[in-house]
């Protein structure tokens, strides 16, 4: 077993053990905290597909996170008010069923990623960063000034949405659901990067002109990766909104994009479990530094600076060493 596999197993073990311990010790807040970490990990796992394997520094992933959140908010809002989403040309009603909400969240985020990607991938490098950031801000301002779904105040949901066979209002059951989703996505992610598509994507990041020479289109590969990436982050957004039973433009803000990127980078870019370790670390830092000082973000900033300037490859990279076979 390689060192990276050990790190991954340890992370997975902790994700199972800590909530079970919290259940036994009757500490429901710890379970909520762990749920938050798992959902952030899922959002970051989405970004990691674009950033780690596609090499696309997208600073606008809050768009997909927020769209996923709004997919849940809008559908549940119409379901709880018994109003149809639209009447014409055919009637669409809201829903409180998680699988349907997830599907809508993933499709709408994927479509957004396709549109943004088509425009942003006309350029590369620093232009790409600025453009994704700018489109993120566009969606943010649109959500703020569009009054139908709460505008700046956001949307609240009375009761958490339902999943067949589970009582999602019980923290540990909802946690189990989120963790299962994360595991499924990570498994698919591992399959994806070993598939012909994943290998081609890797090559498109490193030497685009060679990929072109063998008859593949690097831009199309990257665009597909961005769409998959957006859909995964959108799914995380729907779960996050369900965790809080609330969605607001904050989920679409540029700070959110920055945080999702921070999860990936402190964990380890292009590592399967990098986003998981990064998100857990962030939630822990947020919790403990937040207890120390009201201005904890100063310390968070200093920690981040330290990691960028002196640590290479994030936490997973520092523990596991250079394990990326494709570097």
């Amino acid at each position: 077993m390689s060192r990276e596999a050990l790190v991954n197993s340890a992370a997975l073990l902790l994700l199972v053990a800590v909530p079970v311990w919290a259940l036994w010790a009757d500490e429901p807040f710890t379970i909520t905290l762990a749920t938050r970490a798992v959902i952030f990990a899922l959002a970051a796992a989405g970004l990691n597909i674009a950033l780690g394997w596609g090499g696309m520094v997208s600073l606008g992933h809050a768009v997909y996170f927020g769209l996923g959140g709004y997919a849940m908010g809008v559908l549940a809002f119409h379901a709880q008010n018994y109003t149809p989403l639209m009447d014409w040309p055919f009637t669409i009603t809201g829903t409180k069923s998680m699988p349907v909400i997830w599907l809508v969240a993933m499709i709408s985020s994927a479509v957004a990623a396709l549109v943004i990607g088509l425009l942003a991938l006309r350029t590369s490098g620093v232009y790409f960063i600025m453009i994704t950031l700018a489109f993120g801000q566009m969606v943010f301002f649109f959500a703020i000034s569009w009054p139908t779904y709460g505008g700046e105040d956001g949307l609240s949901i009375y009761v958490r949405n339902s999943f067949p066979g589970l009582n999602t209002l019980v923290p540990i059951e909802f946690y189990g659901l989120c963790l299962s989703v994360l595991c499924v996505i990570l498994f698919l992610n591992a399959r994806l990067i070993r598939s012909p598509f994943g290998l081609a994507l890797n090559a498109a990041r490193q030497v685009p002109h060679r990929v072109e020479t063998v008859g593949m289109n690097p831009t199309r590969l990257k665009l597909s990766a961005l769409v998959i990436s957006g859909a995964v982050t959108g799914l995380a957004g729907a779960l996050f909104a369900d965790l809080n039973r609330f969605v607001s433009p904050t989920m679409l803000s540029w700070q959110m994009s920055g945080e999702i990127m921070v999860f990936v980078i402190i964990g380890g870019v292009g590592r399967l479990f990098g986003p998981v370790v990064g998100a857990c670390l962030f939630v822990l830092l947020e919790h403990f530094l937040g207890g120390v000082s009201e201005y904890w973000q100063v310390f968070l900033g200093l920690v981040l600076l330290g990691i960028v300037l002196f640590g290479h490859g994030g936490v997973v990279g520092m523990i596991a060493g250079r394990g990326r076979t494709h570097d």
């Binding site: 520094v57 960063i129 201005y295 900033g301 200093l302």
Partner: peptide, 18 residues
Amino acid sequence: HLDQVLATFALILIFSEG
């Protein structure tokens, strides 16, 4: 650019909260 983005993002946190 990724390192630059993260480092300057950290600077924003430090400046804003400071």
